[in-house]
């Protein structure tokens, strides 16, 4: 697995119950579109993150299917109504089947 691929997640802390919070995610990844050519004119094979899933205590809260039109180092932000504290798990799936994972605690005030 490539070491340079590093997920980063920002979850606000101290939200009141029922408050809508914004979760920001970023993962370093080239998102090779499969359209580019190398110096020999050969097409560089496609290698992108094709799906992203966020779960709260095992229950899916947000899912995204991504295509080559997503920029390198894909950034996604989405909202969540914070009802209770828990563990947010984030998973990015690569074209080669690798899943990059990270977790973050959601703590309410």
């Amino acid at each position: 697995m490539a070491d340079y691929i590093k997920p980063r997640v920002k979850v606000p802390t101290g939200a009141k119950p029922g408050e809508i919070i914004e979760i920001k995610t970023l993962i370093s990844h080239p998102m090779e579109s499969g359209q580019r050519k190398d110096t020999n004119g050969k097409i560089i094979p496609r290698k992108i993150i094709n799906s992203f899933v966020c779960t709260l205590d095992g229950k899916q809260v947000f899912r995204a299917e991504l295509e080559p039109a997503i920029s390198a180092n894909p950034y996604l932000s989405f909202c969540l109504r914070a009802e209770r504290s828990g563990t947010l798990a984030f998973a990015w799936t690569d074209d080669d089947g690798t899943v990059y994972k990270t977790e973050e605690k959601l703590t309410l005030a």
Binding site: K59, F62, A64, A69, Y75, L76, L80, R81
Partner: peptide, 22 residues
Amino acid sequence: GVATFHFSPVNGRAQVQLRCRL
């Protein structure tokens, strides 16, 4: 195609930010 996003009531607000290639 650029992207597809799946929401549910737990999101509270159907908002998403992203960066795309054109």
